[in-house]
Amino acid sequence: MRFRTRRGIEVVAVADLSLDVADREFISIVGPSGCGKSTLLRVVAGLVRPTTGDVRLDGRRVEGPGADRGMVFQSYTLFPWLTVQGNVEFGLRIKGMAATERTRLAQDYIEMIGLRDFANHYPKELSGGMMQRVAIARALANDPEVLLMDEPFGALDAQTRIIMQELLVNLWQRTPKTIVFVTHDIDEALFLSDRVYIMTARPGQIKQVLNVALPRPRSLEVTTSPVFVDLKRTVLSSIREESLKAISLTGTE
């Protein structure tokens, strides 16, 4: 994938990279900042067109954004003029689902994220964690083949983050989906995923893939287990190597 900047300098954001994600698998992508993790997700979502290469979903070539690939962003993207209920119903309404079915389905998801009492509240009345929960429910209710998550908890405080991670694992176990999760939080990646992809500095390539052989369902205690700590050490040194490369390349910091 290649991009041109405004000044005409060609930046290869993501180089030859191929990812195969199996059905109902939870994978994470970690890497040094600026390695193109988010770009990769946007390409998969169809929001950015790759210069070369393609994205295939079940063998079909992806041509643009679509409801089969849901996405949760780091920034708060709830529609401020819709209530929690309205936000969760947004995609279903576009699909043309009948009102009663739509309402019931949205209610189920709102229940699952524990916000039943807030169903008729506007986003401005919610906390950051609540808004991201609704964003996840909105994406899941739409029943995508793949759920893309671009640092969805990046803007939240450390305590809320952990609660959100547990909630996401729970949701995923109840409604299994293929999830591609981008983060720079290594604990988060290991705690959530079946596999962790480590990317190199720009131009981003896959440097290493780690299988996270931790039993499910996972609880927070898993993060102190020897296997987890071991994996974390591997990822840390791998990313550190890349971050150093990235810094010496740009000559900043």
Binding site: A45, T77, F79, F90, G91, N142
Partner: peptide, 18 residues
């Protein structure tokens, strides 16, 4: 208007017109 707001609508299946 935040670009991410439009992009989330696209990923929820909305057409450009919508």
């Amino acid at each position: 208007v935040p670009k991410d707001l439009l992009d989330s609508a696209y990923t929820l299946g909305a057409s450009r017109r919508r």
